[in-house]
Design a protein around this nucleic acid. Structure first.
Length: 443
DNA sequence: GGGCGAAGGACCC
DNA sequence: TTCCAGGGTCCTTCGTAT
């Protein structure tokens, strides 16, 4: 458990002191114990991986390398420099909006969120080690003068919408990833721009927010680039193979979107730290990982990513969850359950959606998370039906741990597969498996 | 032996 | 004082019905 400094503005700080404070605030807590439990799980996974590695002989690995090389040749075929992809990231977005609306916050350390959790912080606060996904009470310890502004999502949504209006002028198929992030394919725009006059060429900015641009031949690289030269920076990878390979060569795998804490540890344990290490260890990786993961690793090692910016507009699920002070009496648990059903139904109705698979999520006071799901015959947005389903799932959980009470700190509801109107057969035709299994070695 | 639902995770913001 | 969120997506594994 330490500070995650994989973030802009966190370059030169007293990490030792910060980590000490975080540790002092955390140790002994239920949360901390659960984190340790999770760390043990990762260690166990690494040990299992190690054992597997030792069971391979050199000839097998060589064979895998050849196979990987064939796959890499196919990936090389897909390399495409014809599109100009931009990834835009609004810097410390929520904080920037709050500072815009209240300039007195500008030069003091401030964060957006609550005492339980911060969403983001400004650069003043980052100097103290205060960052997103840090609980407010620890942030306060690190920086006693920190001002915490409560989140106001409606406001951020509005600003985000305004910004998107502007971005749409550059790419009508622009793909927003969240309130503060988007991918654009500006190839067409660049072609048209050649005929623009000076006035048309000025980039219209929304008031005050800083933003990062990553410009590259594909989405994966553009995303990494937008994280360079923060704040308010811009980074471009030249559009040729050598430049891409140079860029990727020493790039830590952790910087790549999709490779997180756990994968990074697992890879690190076998000597893979940079993207070129992914290539170096391709023989081993092919044997250890699934076809999907391995294919992804290879593409990363070659700096090849998707060039098609398009939004998959239909949402797959909708959920709502709440954290609270412990509740354990069945009557209260059921009441909370009903409350959440109501909240979910309200959200469903707003978007005129229905749910087919109802999932109950619970988190015990020891931070153990469990989910229980039940699929209905037909999609619904009826509170009573939703509740009776969720209630049965909850009842089972209560029985399961009796005679001990079920002691919870969080409960959530979600629904999925709403797209299919009343029990239609879902057309799940992704040729994914067949294609990838073609590459995967026969066991 | 492919499909599918359920459960659990990893990751991202 | 407060004592680690909430909203998503995608992938893997497992059991069992077909």
């Amino acid at each position: 458990m330490a500070l995650n400094d994989n973030k802009a503005g966190m370059g030169n700080l007293d990490k030792e002191r910060i980590n000490k404070v975080i540790y002092e605030m955390s140790k002994g807590s239920k949360y901390y114990e659960n984190e340790q439990r999770k760390e043990e799980q990762v260690k166990a996974k690494i040990a299992a991986q190690h054992k597997q590695i030792q069971s391979f002989d050199a000839r097998e690995i060589e064979k895998s390398e050849l196979q990987a090389d064939a796959m890499l040749a196919a990936i090389e075929e897909m390399r495409d420099f014809s599109r100009t992809i931009v990834h835009i990231d609004m810097d410390a977005f929520y904080a920037a909006v709050e500072m815009r609306d209240n300039p007195s916050l500008k030069n003091i350390p401030m964060a957006v969120g609550g005492s339980a959790m911060l969403s983001t912080s400004n650069y003043e606060a980052r100097r103290f080690g205060v960052r997103a996904a840090m609980p407010g009470f620890i942030a306060k310890k690190l920086c006693p003068d920190l001002v915490i502004v409560p989140t106001n999502f409606d406001k951020y949504r509005q600003v985000s919408k305004d910004v998107k209006e502007i971005l749409l002028q550059y790419d009508p198929n622009m793909c927003p990833m969240s309130l503060d992030e988007a991918y654009l394919d500006i190839t067409q725009h660049l072609a048209e721009r050649k005929n623009f006059d000076a006035e048309q060429k000025t980039f219209r900015t929304a008031d005050g927010e800083q933003r990062m641009f990553g410009i590259a031949p594909n989405m994966m690289l553009a995303k990494v680039c937008s994280d360079f030269n923060k704040p308010n920076g811009q980074y471009l990878i030249p559009f040729n193979r050598q430049a891409v390979m140079d860029f990727v060569k020493d790039l830590p795998v952790r910087k790549v979107c999709g490779i997180g804490r756990v994968s990074c540890s697992m890879l690190g344990a076998m000597g893979v730290v940079t993207c070129s290490d992914l290539f170096r260890k391709r023989g081993l990786l092919l044997k250890l990982y699934s076809a999907i993961s391995f294919n992804y690793f290879l593409r990363v090692s070659a700096g090849v990513g998707s060039t098609s910016v398009q939004r998959g507009d239909d949402r797959k699920s909708m959920s709502t969850e709440r954290t609270f002070a412990e509740i354990n009496r069945p009557a209260e648990l059921f009441a909370k359950c009903y409350e959440l059903c109501e909240a979910l139904v309200e959200d469903l109705k707003k978007e005129n959606l229905k749910g087919k698979t109802i999932t109950l999520k619970i988190k015990t006071i020891k931070y153990i998370v469990r989910t229980k799901a039940h699929s209905l015959l037909n999609a619904t947005q009826d509170v009573q039906l939703l509740y009776s389903t969720a209630r049965d799932l909850l009842r089972t959980e209560i029985r399961l741990c009796s005679p001990e009470p079920l002691r919870l700190r969080l409960m959530g509801k979600s629904r999925g597969e709403q797209k299919l109107p009343f029990g239609a057969v879902k057309p799940k035709t992704d040729g994914r498996h067949t294609l990838l299994n073609y590459f995967k070695s026969p066991k």
